[in-house]
Write a protein that binds this DNA or RNA. Structure first.
Length: 266
DNA sequence: AATGGGACCTGCGCGC
DNA sequence: TGCGCGCAGGTCCCAT
């Protein structure tokens, strides 16, 4: 489940190997993942364009191209980018100059590829909240005080803050010692400060270690990310807390699994 | 505004 | 062995 750290890891990986390469040909093996324009136009218009810049906004990957348009990629749950690729199971294969292939794989077909004139105008992008690393503490504090929502679902809201998903929300709240049921506006200043600090630290550390390879996520090379060994709560239901030995709980909030330590997180 | 549910998909692990 | 079911969670959409 690629979240900000996984997408940023892929962005950095891509930057090292495909920047400046030309898209020679696009093979669409499953048109479902191409959301705009039509698959035929998508294929045709990408041909001959050079990859000029590789950006990330929230969990969205953006490849800016030589004619000013952009290829945007949302991996959703099971999307992967692999290079050098060439897998028979890929959904879309981008043949690049130099002879190698960039594969877009996606088991569950939730992923979204778009070719757009201006990525900033995509509805999804317009709805995104601030990037965690651009956010000042004062702004964050204000944002929290205006929300009565439970803090865990709030962290998942991309319009509130962009890039955090189910896994990192759990890890961040554990490290900030905040119970997932707490209301955002009721957090103490100390808790808000801890939360602000842990959002940056957890995401940063996860990027440093190449993201968390659970389920389908792999880096561009196909290798796994190493952050799973730093997980404190995610996926650790009924296992002892690393801090206090209480058993980690799994509850459901807004239809999503939430892992936490009932003793450390009050 | 907050909250809950279903939809999109598919493979996996479970119980029978 | 094999079948059906629930589950995983990013995002959108609808209902309350």
């Amino acid at each position: 489940m690629p979240e900000l750290p996984e997408v940023e890891t892929i962005r950095r990986d891509l930057q090292k190997v495909i920047l400046g390469k030309k898209i020679i040909r696009v093979c669409v093996h499953n048109p479902m993942v191409i959301r705009e324009p039509s698959p035929a136009v998508f294929k045709n218009n990408l041909k001959g364009l050079v990859i000029k810049k590789i950006l990330r906004r929230g969990k969205l990957l953006i490849l800016e191209l030589s004619n000013g348009s952009s290829l945007t990629i949302h991996l959703k749950m099971t999307g992967q980018l692999v290079y050098p690729g060439g897998s028979k199971n890929s959904r879309v294969a981008f043949h690049l100059s130099g002879g190698e292939i960039l594969d877009f794989n996606d088991q569950r077909l939730f992923g979204e590829l778009r070719l757009v004139d201006d990525w900033r105008k995509i509805k999804f992008v317009q709805g995104l909240g601030p990037e965690p690393f651009d956010l000042t503490y004062d702004d964050f504090k204000d944002m929290l005080s205006k929300k009565k929502t439970k803090i865990k679902p709030l962290l998942l809201e991309q319009s509130f803050i962009s890039g955090i998903g189910n896994l990192y929300a759990a890890e961040i709240l554990f490290r900030a010692k905040i119970n997932p049921w707490r209301s955002a506006s009721n957090l103490t200043d100390k808790e808000k400060k801890a939360l602000y600090k842990e959002i940056k630290e957890v995401l940063n550390s996860a990027i440093t270690h190449g993201g968390s390879s659970i389920d389908d996520y792999v880096r561009l090379s196909g290798k796994k990310g190493n952050y799973v060994k730093f997980h404190r709560v995610y996926g650790r239901q009924d296992k002892p807390c690393f801090v206090c030995k209480s058993l980690i709980k799994r509850i459901t909030q807004g239809g999503r699994g939430t892992y936490f330590c009932p003793k450390c997180q009050r």
